[in-house]
Simulated scan of single mutants.
Amino acid sequence: MLTAIGLDDRHEAAYRALVAVGAADVADLARRLTLGVQDTERALQGLERQGLAARSSARPGRWVAAPPAVALGALLTRQRHELERAELAAALLAREYRAAAAEPAVHDLVEVVTGASAVAQRFLQLQLGAAEEVCALVTGAPVAVTAPENEAEEQAAGRGVRYRVVVERAVLDLPQALGGLTEALGRGERVRMADRVPTKLVVADRSLAMVPLTSHSAEPAALVVHASGLLELLAGLFESVWREALPLRLNTDGAAEEVPDGPDGTDLEVLSLLLAGLTDASVAKHLDLGLRTVQRRVKRLMELAGVTTRLQLGWHAYERGWVTRGRPD
């Protein structure tokens, strides 16, 4: 818990033990920590350098803990100052970067990354740097990073970054693919499936994209695309594939299930009543459905349409002809 202020597990354990007993000699503390005497003494010396422990002047050979409120408070204050300086340096660098990129040269809009290690590092950085959304097209076998190795995805999703992913059907046959998709769905990521995906692609915050390069060599390579018309084209490609793909669900056995590609009769009734101006509660009462059932059906309709608001759903309903269909027999 104290790693954030520079204490490793051994130093933290030694400090906690010293706080618990108030004062102890090296041998006693070593027994409590199940460490060797030399390792315990080195840990105490490390605590001494950070002001967390001191040799007892009243009882030679014994060590005492510094009061946590004072000693840890000082370390926290120092850490805050260091973070503030780092944030200031990052802000200044970002300002310099924006100034230099205000009129970017053509060759600055695209980076060529070569080698499995470099491609993997850039792929992970792209996700860790995302603030709002990561969109991805996933095909076939991985180029540089497998699903279990993609720790950045879990970290970014944990920070609240939204993920929209379209996977090619063939991906489901890869080892550990279903396990990875189950975890992604469990984190709240939106996953769709298509028979075929045109290319691997990752777009972060619509400001940066990464796409593999077709190469005759065995060495993986990729293009990293910055804000430009090319980036807009790649983002548009993702949205096009996303709209045509079907939402993916996994049943209790871990098998993939596709959501039907259109609304059923009850969905159409719900939709028509909502477009007529009824509230969710009124629709539920009119159709003799539960309120939560109506809301679940609306959410599913939004997923089918690939939209995030009910206003967009109404527009897509007219575009797709949903509101003009009759209820199936």
Rank of each mutant, 00 (worst) to 15 (best):
V197L: 10
L234H: 05
R300N: 02
L208S: 04
T308M: 06
R296G: 05
V191M: 08
V298G: 07
E239M: 03
Q176Y: 13
L250V: 12
T266Q: 15
A170D: 15
A235G: 10
V197Y: 06
E269I: 01
V225P: 03
L289G: 01
S240Q: 07
L223Q: 11
E219C: 08
L172T: 15
A184M: 03
V298D: 00
P175C: 02
D173M: 04
Q295D: 11
L172H: 05
D267V: 05
E258W: 07
D205G: 07
E239C: 06
L185Q: 09
M302N: 03
L174C: 00
R243Y: 06
L178G: 02
G236R: 05
S217N: 05
D267I: 13
T199K: 04
A194R: 02
T309F: 10
D264Y: 11
L208C: 08
L181K: 09
T308N: 08
P198V: 04
L268T: 03
T252M: 10
R300E: 14
A256D: 11
L230K: 06
V270I: 15
L275V: 10
M302S: 13
V191E: 07
E269D: 14
L301V: 09
G179E: 14
E244A: 15
G188C: 11
A276N: 11
L268K: 05
G277Q: 13
K285N: 02
L233P: 00
V270L: 01
V191G: 09
T266A: 11
A281K: 04
R297D: 00
G236L: 09
A170T: 07
A170W: 04
